[in-house]
């Protein structure tokens, strides 16, 4: 009974989320959003790198930066996918209260709603990688890729990001106004603390612990190592740790943040019912 409730919450939410997400009345907008935007972002990075390194695209550092940036797309996409559903259902479709009184698990429903953004996010990541390989001098030797490590890391990371999205969904629930971009905003704020395009060692000393505490740091490092191997000279942050140790830290922090997310979501849910916020709509 429990699993079937969870499963149907998740399955129907994913179905709904996909219909909403893929409902691009304007295919042009879709192209801009999921292709042009990530590629132009990556292109800017490549140009900046080119200027700073005086065109040294052969350095192992380059794919490291490029991959970090590409996979970071997932962070905003997945976190927003989950947390945005609260705003969408409450403000836009006015259905959140009907979801709430239905016999479903709301957290699982919200996670399901995030699936669509995970899929469009994956397309964006893939296109960015492809563009990098084809046009922007990114070299990946596919024979040397550690696929097991890559997919394990990817899955753990996406689950971790979805749980962080749930945390943000809880916070959104208690905010009366339509703080819809909390997902993207958080992703933006964490960008510099995740070692995405530069090592944490560049940050002032007092800021570094934030980076060490973020699971995204370990996640990006492992994804890059699985694809191109370790680049210790340029990204020395985690050089002394083996893949397995980093995976351990990623899993540990993911479990920690997952538990915190569930706790915070429940608490916010409680507050929302105390204050009557579940069907609160702001007038645009």
């Amino acid at each position: 009974m429990q699993t079937s409730t969870s499963w149907r919450s998740f399955r129907m939410a994913a179905w709904l989320g996909w219909l909403i997400e893929s409902n691009w009345t304007d295919p042009f907008l879709f192209a801009v959003y999921s292709i042009v935007k990530p590629i132009s972002g990556a292109a800017i990075l490549v140009i900046m790198y080119g200027i700073i390194s005086q065109g040294n695209y052969e350095s192992a550092l380059f794919p490291y930066i490029y991959l970090g940036n590409a996979f970071y797309i997932y962070v905003g996409a997945v976190m927003t996918g989950v947390s945005w559903a609260v705003v969408d259902d409450r403000e836009h479709y006015r259905t959140l209260k009907y979801m709430y009184i239905a016999p479903i698990h709301i957290p699982i429903y919200l996670l399901g709603r995030g699936v669509a953004r995970f899929i469009t996010g994956s397309i964006a990541v893939l296109i960015t990688l492809l563009a990098g390989i084809l046009f922007l001098n990114v070299r990946i030797n596919f024979a040397e890729v550690d696929w097991l490590l890559f997919f394990t890391t990817l899955i753990v990371g996406v689950v971790m990001l979805a749980m962080l999205g749930l945390l943000l969904a809880g916070v959104t629930l208690t905010l009366a106004r339509h703080e819809g971009f909390i997902g993207e905003a958080t992703a933006g704020a964490l960008y510099i603390f995740s070692g995405a395009v530069f090592p944490l060692d560049i940050l002032p000393e007092w800021m570094r612990p934030i980076g060490y505490f973020m699971p995204t740091t370990y996640w990006l490092e492992l994804l890059r190592r699985s694809l191109v191997g370790n680049v210790a000279q340029a990204f020395p942050t985690l050089a002394n740790f083996s893949n397995l140790q980093i995976l351990g830290m990623l899993v540990g922090l993911s479990i920690f943040f997952g538990a915190v997310s569930i706790f915070i979501f429940r608490w916010c849910d409680f507050i929302a019912r105390e204050k009557g916020l579940i069907d609160r709509t702001t007038n645009y």
Binding site: L16, L19, I20, N23, Y93, R94, T95, K97, Y98, I101
Partner: peptide
Amino acid sequence: NMVSGGESSGYGLL
């Protein structure tokens, strides 16, 4: 189950 009148809720694209 519950229905409130005087509001239009629902997923317009479905």
